[in-house]
Design a protein around this nucleic acid. Sequence first.
DNA 1: CTAAATCCTG
DNA 2: CAGGATTTAG
Length: 542
Amino acid sequence: MCDQTVGPSNAPRDAFLPWHQPSVCDLDSSRQFQNEHLQAKRARVENIIQGMSTMPNPPIMSGALGGSNQLRAQDVKVNCRENKRKQKLPQQQNLQDAALARSGKSSIHADECFQLKKQLHVLQHQLKQIQERFLQPEKTMDLVRGNIGQSLDSDNPTFVSDQGKDNLWRRTPQTQESESSDKEAEMVDFHAMTSEERILSDILKHELIQVVTQAVDSVMRKVLTKSPSLQTQVPTAAPGTQSCTGIELARAGQSGSHNWLPKVSSHKTSIEKPPDFSTCPLHSKIERKPCQGPLMNCPLATSTDVQGSGILSQMLLCGQNGHWNSSPPESLDTPIQPIKLKSSVMRHHRHSKPYKPAEMEHLASLPVPNAEFTETHSLLDTETLTPGHLKKAKLMFFFSRYPASSLLKAYFLDVQFTRCITSQLIKWFSNFREFYYIQMEKFARQAILEGITNPSDLIVTRNSELFRILNIHYNKGNDFEVPDGFLDVASLTLQEFFSAVMAGKDMDPSWKKPIYKIISKLDREIPDAFKSSSCPRELISS
DNA sequence: CTAAATCCTG
DNA sequence: CAGGATTTAG
């Protein structure tokens, strides 16, 4: 009865199964698999070239590569976009790209970009001319089509070092695995060529390399002159040698893998015990397994330890602050956000008529006399949430991850609960959870990469880096003693993420939901002390 | 339909 | 962290 043919909903799930292991049983499909990779690779090359030309022009090699490949490349992009909500995995690959893009913006100014663009266009023209010079006979077109793609990809030892190549080109583990077989297939074609054809392809390759190298060098030069601090690290972008980018990428990955736990080194006070590796089970046997994954597979690896690494890693660092990196920009001194303190005027209004959002805005922007300020501060009922409330909410998160709105009302007695306020509070906790789960997933994945196999090895202690990050987020001043219960919840969450990813469940778009359910049942009673005080000062002392 | 959750973005 | 978009439970 439970036949696979019945349920259409089974179909996608079954597709996950042959994850890493290439199945030997089906020759046809594996052959097609290779073809697809080949195409994908060409599309990738095109993407890169297009990216360099910052897209005002149609791709340089359009003539040689044929339209179908372009479509392919675009399809990839479109699909990424479409799957944005459905798939988590492909996104993470894009994070690297995004980081690069953003970092570029930060270090190179608009006019320089324009200059570079122009330069690139010139180079593109040169390339095109070269191509045209050699591509006149129609019948050589096909030949070249085959070779340009592969020369950039795997066939060309002088383009990038092997080390760098991996990091530059490889996207998914699957891609890498099929690489050797791809190469073999291509080599056969290569040897089948006549000497003339081979020379032709060699020339083309050479020209292509030159152009790309020039472009890279010029970019590097611009970057180097822009950031003098980097000049010592990368003395001269050795012209003619292959993009140091690859090497730098590799280095960044390596140095990062030594300590995958971000150390905030530049902060004066922090809580930081020198990340205590002995007491933190998360670090156990890490040492230095050459970070087998490409950069994107060890997101933590790049988030610190910049010193030795080069420009690219620096750029990556600049770019990635927004999302999963919480530590460096966070100051330990609680930053006081600009919030609108309302005057007592508002309170008078409140009883007369229900305030409308517009009215609130208006009143909130009115100048507030000092006396009013202090009065409001001490008395009951605020229609705006203060930083004090935020701090309190964060501390409450240690006890309850999923507080119902009724519970919130019970604990924020000094707040007038409008719809707006309620949803803001709800939103806060939603944000808290988001941060929390992101950290959990991050550390869980890292643990997997480090070779940990037993979920019970993952226990969050007050010494572990994960705790430090959470504590700095929810308990910035470290002036509240985090309940042990929270550590248990955190450990469990981490383990759940770990096992789920381990089991490959993260392929499922909604794989986190079961985890959310589990965690949502672990809410504890929030101490009554939170009810009384609007500001958690009393809590801090007690 | 609303409320709330999550995801994404800035 | 806030806003917008999207999804989902009730």
